[in-house]
Nucleic acid binder design. Structure first.
Lengths: 354, 354
DNA sequence: CTGAAAGCGCTTACAG
DNA sequence: CTGAAAGCGCTTACAG
């Protein structure tokens, strides 16, 4: 009969008969308008009234219904964040700074891994759309077409890209200057006397992978070194596959004396693999990483790497999105954060013979 | 004037004038009731009509408004998951299996780190309540009072606990049998001939910390070894603090020959620290971890550890919550998953002298 | 098989 | 400073 009539079970009730604005209003002999205003600290409501209302809300265990509010205002207070994998410390560190920034602006943030699965990413974007999310921070899955970004934008879901960017997406993106950064690592190894330098990890399918490889190739050329295809072991992007790649590396004929890795995770895996084979990274073979995750400094040997500005990427991406929520126009540029070389033990403490 | 009148801008419009059920209904000369039913595949709607409706929805770029639906049905399709830190692979692995399980049931899951900050956890629970979330999977922050759990439960937000449990919370929890598991590791070291065994990491403030310590102490006693307070280095719970603890360990007088660590992360950090000091873990000193995270098998030396059933914890916790969403009663028990010892290199390949 | 109407719990002009 | 009323976009009995 009265299916929805959860109803006002009386005035000062401390029980859970679903307290809503009207419950409080009734109890106090006020209107829901006044209660609504008071709870949001509107100066329109007299101080005394406001306090009475807040007190009653507290006592009655009132819970604000954000769905209802959001349906009315079309603001949800939600920002979606979707990356390849939050377990990867590289993303973890970016997320931490996004979280800080969003927290400060009282936005709820919803996290999602797409594992480079386009369908999973789409379903997340869809969910954000359906929830009326206020914005989306995305590190796009491999193969994301610009249309996927525009779908969101066209439906009033502002998007900011991080770590990876997409040609023609028409939205702002923040990432490190990967080509430059990888150049730094390779230059460093060349300066230490290496002439045969391998690169392990990364794929052609992300901007990150392409740019880091380009930086590697450019630096070799700069150093007057002719690249040999067998030096390039594509693929690995995590610790495990880095570990596996170590044995492939060891089988390369006229074996390189140094390895630049796609990421710290890959480098750490490679170092585990080399040690397993009885080689001492930083001694028998120079190894560099990329990202400067927390672990790089305590790894043994400590890892020479390229600091990639994760927290700056996160902070600025969140900042840019918040700007847009305040009505700013979408920028279309990709903003490159300048990376920095961190020299530690894994690249060797002395010159190598090559 | 007509602030909310986004309105039906005409029939077959492909433009973004906010398409809603009524837009589709108008375009097709049907009622919103029929459209709503059709879009959710109700057999009440004739096949042909259903197809026409779906086609129109697709063409017009209709986006389902979940807030509106959820306001009406008081089902949101959202499950919140809150843990100490998703970057910790231990939680990461649990989350992955929760994610799989929830995905299969088309529940959106919202992730949150509380970093053991009670206020942050509360604000997350609040958000879930306000969003009308369907359920909550929680690894409670240190010091969580049972009342915080009951607040959620009293407001129809079913809670399932993972990894850590809380006395008197009255809800189901899933975690490994920590005391038993730690006993396994210590027994193993004793069997290898160790008589002085330190324990690094963990705190009294979590059930996990207490139980693992209890397991350690019980196993020493079982082995006829008298515990010495200087063997117990409390505190470390991540890689970095494990690394730092290594030097404290080295300063212990009459130094132990073996270390059981609170977690793999701590053990991995300890091993980095020992190596840094020129000691070879698994050779000069035996080390064990706890959790059997992915990295344990590829670490060098590979890490002897206790498999803690992360994916089983995640899967069963999600399963139990889904059961409750289907109307099952809340259980009150804590379910212990039986852990398993994984013997690898770090505990030594031969007997030690003690 | 389809439609008219009420209602989920808020917020927002508008009046007073 | 406070209240009455409309409306956000759905879904759900109920009628036909």
């Amino acid at each position: 009969m009265q299916e929805g009539a959860a109803g006002n079970a009386g005035s000062g009730l401390r029980v859970a008969q679903k307290v809503k604005l009207s419950t409080i209003a009734d109890a106090l002999g006020l209107s829901t308008a006044t209660v609504s205003l008071a709870l949001r600290d509107s100066p329109l409501v007299a101080e005394v009234t406001r306090e009475r209302i807040k007190e009653e809300a507290r006592l009655s265990g009132y819970i604000y219904n954000r769905r209802a509010a959001s349906l009315r205002t079309s603001r949800s207070g939600i920002v979606g964040v979707c990356v390849h994998d939050v377990m990867n410390p590289f993303f973890g560190e970016i997320l931490k700074s996004i979280e800080d920034e969003l927290d400060r602006h009282r936005q709820t943030f919803i996290l999602c891994n797409h594992y480079d699965d386009l369908a999973k990413q789409r379903s997340f974007v869809d969910t954000m759309l359906q929830l009326g999310s206020d914005g989306l921070i995305l590190s796009p899955a491999i193969g994301t077409p610009p249309a996927d970004i525009r779908l969101a934008e066209d439906n009033e879901l502002p998007v900011t890209l991080i770590a990876r960017t997409i040609e023609g997406s028409g939205v702002t993106g923040f990432r490190g200057d990967d080509a430059y950064g990888m150049g730094l690592a390779v230059d460093h190894l060349i300066a230490r006397g290496h002439r045969r330098i391998a690169m392990i990890g990364g794929t052609q399918f992300t901007s990150t992978g392409r740019d880091r490889e380009a930086g590697y190739l450019a630096a070799l050329k700069r150093g007057g070194i002719e690249f040999r295809p067998q030096w390039r072991l594509e693929g690995p992007r995590d610790r495990h596959s880095g570990f596996d790649a170590a044995s492939q590396f060891l089988a390369i004929e006229d074996r390189p004396t140094a390895i630049v890795c796609f990421s710290d995770l890959v480098a750490l895996g490679v170092m585990y693999g080399l040690s397993r084979a009885g080689l001492r990274p930083g001694h028998d073979i120079a190894v560099t990483g990329y990202d400067d995750i927390d672990e790089a400094a305590i790894a043994t040997p400590s890892l020479t790497t390229v600091a990639n500005g994760q927290s700056e990427v996160g902070r600025r991406a969140a900042g840019a999105l918040l700007e847009r929520l305040r009505g700013a126009e979408a920028g279309e540029e990709t903003i490159l954060i300048t990376p920095e070389l961190k020299i530690r033990q894994s690249s060797g403490h002395r010159d190598f013979d090559s």
